[in-house]
């Protein structure tokens, strides 16, 4: 489903004439199979957000090739990326990223609006999904009138409304309490199980990583471990004293 081959990325910072090259990712080779839940873990600055941004098309790799669903997306233009995102991706963000001036209903509806779907079909699809996710009663509420958990559910509904094959989630439970986190994770597992949606989740939360079929660990921009979750956890346990930070247990540190 998602294939990264020798992907590297570097940022150029500083003023003109005094630019500095900061390498972020080095030669990443990664394959995510259809229907997989993959967690990307790593410390702050390890490059996991950059990796997700490359998959999302928000930034372009400095080297290497990215294929999504067999299509080389490395050289897509901005407009082509926009269409590609709308057709293939759902996004769940840490801070929900709902549009404040739109109601919950309008936020969920947004991808359908962008796709040009109108009328009864649009209404039916939004209502059905909102009921499934349990937010039908908040349709007329603005994001500021909803709790964190409710907002995240609206955000999940928005990511799923076009029934995308892939959902990219960036710290999806980062702003949720443990109960809401549990609900969200159950929902992700259910969606993966029932609809076969592929999930790529960035997290440093043990709970979140535990639902993944596979976890990928990044360290200093390099892929150091690819295994199922339990192996990663064991690897982290081993390196805990070396790294000096138990990021999984503490859970509070943010990317």
């Amino acid at each position: 489903m998602i294939e990264l081959a020798n992907v590297s990325h570097q940022f150029i910072i500083g003023k003109k004439g005094k630019e500095r090259v900061v390498p972020v990712l080095h030669d990443i080779d990664l394959k995510v199979a259809k229907g997989e839940i993959v967690a990307i873990v790593g410390r702050s600055g390890s490059g996991k957000s950059t990796l997700l941004n490359l998959m999302s098309g928000y930034i372009r790799p400095s080297a290497g090739e990215i294929k999504i669903g067999g299509r080389d997306v490395t050289k897509l233009s901005e407009g082509e990326w926009a269409d590609f995102r709308l057709a293939n991706y759902g996004f769940i963000f840490q801070s929900f990223q709902l549009i404040g001036s739109m109601t919950a209903y309008e936020n969920v509806e947004l991808p359908l609006v962008l796709k040009g779907i109108t009328g009864a079909e649009r209404k039916q699809r939004v209502m059905r999904l909102m009921e499934q996710i349990g937010i039908a009663e908040y349709g007329g509420h603005y994001p500021s009138e909803l709790s964190g958990g409710q907002q995240q559910r609206v955000s999940v509904a928005r990511s799923l409304i076009l029934e995308p094959p892939i959902v990219l989630a960036d710290e999806p439970s980062g702003s949720l309490d443990s109960e809401n986190e549990k609900t969200l994770l159950t929902m992700i597992q259910q969606l993966n199980h029932e609809m076969g949606i592929t999930f790529v989740i960035i997290t440093h939360d043990e709970q979140v990583a535990s639902i993944a079929h596979r976890a990928i660990r990044l360290q200093d921009g390099k892929l150091v471990h690819q295994s199922d979750y339990r192996q990663v956890a064991a690897h982290d346990e081993q390196h805990r004293s070396v790294a000096g930070v138990d990021y999984i247990r503490q859970g509070g540190e943010r990317e």
Partner: peptide, 15 residues
């Protein structure tokens, strides 16, 4: 921010 969100989820620049 709203524009950023719309672009992030797939709004075409021409839209």
């Amino acid at each position: 921010q709203d524009i950023g969100i719309m672009k992030a989820i797939g709004a075409h620049p021409s839209v």
